[in-house]
């Protein structure tokens, strides 16, 4: 298993309502052990997964949103957010968690994981991938 592939996890759905978002995140965390070249994309209602201040008390479901902030520690450092998906929902980057990673090669400098891209740019990002995990 020496070959390194470009893995893209596509997150399209709201965080609660269905289990896809949570079980998708579980694949990302387990998959990190395989040391592939991992990216994540958040499009459509998937952008809600990263919103700040989620409170699931009334839903009686686990609030798993704090887990996203650990992605940097799992070396998941490329997180693409689609600009149009945010805009269509009246959201901006300010509404999302600030996800970062520490760059070992630059004295553990903290860097932004989130890259805001247009729908057209997202298509280019997708065109460059080997494997899609579509959730």
């Amino acid at each position: 298993m020496s070959e390194i592939k470009k893995f893209m996890y596509v997150n399209r759905r709201a965080p609660y309502g269905t289990i896809y978002a949570w079980e998708s995140l579980e694949v990302v965390l387990i998959g990190a052990a395989f040391e592939q070249d991992v990216s994540m994309a958040f499009i459509d209602d998937g952008v809600y997964q990263l919103t700040k201040g989620q409170d699931t008390t009334g839903l009686e479901m686990k609030n798993f949103s704090p887990t996203y902030s650990a992605l940097g520690d799992y070396e998941v450092t490329k997180i693409y957010i689609e600009k149009e998906s945010l805009e269509e929902r009246g959201l901006t980057l300010e509404d999302l968690q600030h996800l970062t990673w520490e760059d070992e090669d630059e004295d553990w400098a903290e860097k932004d994981s989130i890259k805001l891209v247009s729908r057209a740019e997202m298509a280019q990002v997708f065109a460059d991938q080997d494997v899609f995990f579509n959730f």
Partner: peptide
């Protein structure tokens, strides 16, 4: 078995085909 089996499958195969 574990989710690692899915990730391994994606690495080892030419195509991962997802139904859903």
């Amino acid at each position: 078995s574990g989710l690692g089996q899915l990730v391994e499958g994606a690495i080892q195969s030419d195509r991962l085909v997802v139904f859903g």
